[in-house]
Amino acid sequence: MSLHRTELPWATLRIVVGAVFAFILGPIVITAAVSFNGTARSVFPPQGFSLRWWSEALEWKWLDPLIFSLELAALVALVSSLTGTMVAFAMVRGQFRGKALVEMLLMGPLILPSLVTGIALLQFLHAMGLGSFVGFWGLLIGHVIICLPFSVRTVAIALKTMPASLEAAAASLGASTGSVLWRVTLPVIGGGVFAGMAFSFVHSFTDVNLSLFLASPGERPVTVAILSFLEFGFAPTLAAVSMISLFIPLLLIMVLQRFVPIGDFLYAQERPNE
């Protein structure tokens, strides 16, 4: 018997944790069940079985915003991870005037409520005569702003946890500065870059607070589409759409996790160099 197990009344803890797990998973399981409901109301337990809601969820009415969300999230992930990587390099490796200010600036979107960032950007775009940006461009800008801190952070952690001796070793073996970057540093921190990319994708794909204000009727992500549909009722179609929009990021993370331990970056502490 391991010593850890004796530290708390383990049996009691297990029951409590089991209950919390039921609380975590219950609503998702129930949503899944309702999506196969035989009736047109969101009732549980489901009455009968039908694939009607799933086939409705796969109509263009829903596929359009789903595809829009996918495209947006992919682009946001790309832009924010590329930018985030550059910035992380500068922040971890560089010494420059105004570094502390840039650092504050980068953390800003994480600290300010994203809803406020959304209405601020909405008004600002209108005030600058960029009202036509509302929709795809506004969403892209807004999402990159709120995703950037994640990308910078994951890459910065990867950079800081990479032993400095790796680059020194490469240099001693004859690799020039550019070659060290390309052949050693980037491959080694690749995990962090991918993790940042995955976070950004999921963050963009699931965002409500910003999209709420920056979407336009023709260019809206699936979360906003669901919200506006909710104003008319709670048809089980939504359960099916919800399931689809849950599976997309889940699938992405599962595939990525095979190559990169993304989870490590979730609660990794930033460690200073030795």
């Binding site: 219950g26 609503p27 998702i28 129930i30 309702v34 009732v43 699931t206 919200l227 709670f234 993370i253």
Partner: peptide
């Protein structure tokens, strides 16, 4: 941690199904 992958809307919708008048 998996709920983080789902939009708040997806998760809240489940609570609607549980708590509404005909709910679970």
């Amino acid at each position: 941690l998996s709920p983080l992958l789902a939009s708040v809307i997806v998760r809240t919708y489940g609570w609607y199904v549980i708590l509404n008048q005909e709910g679970a």
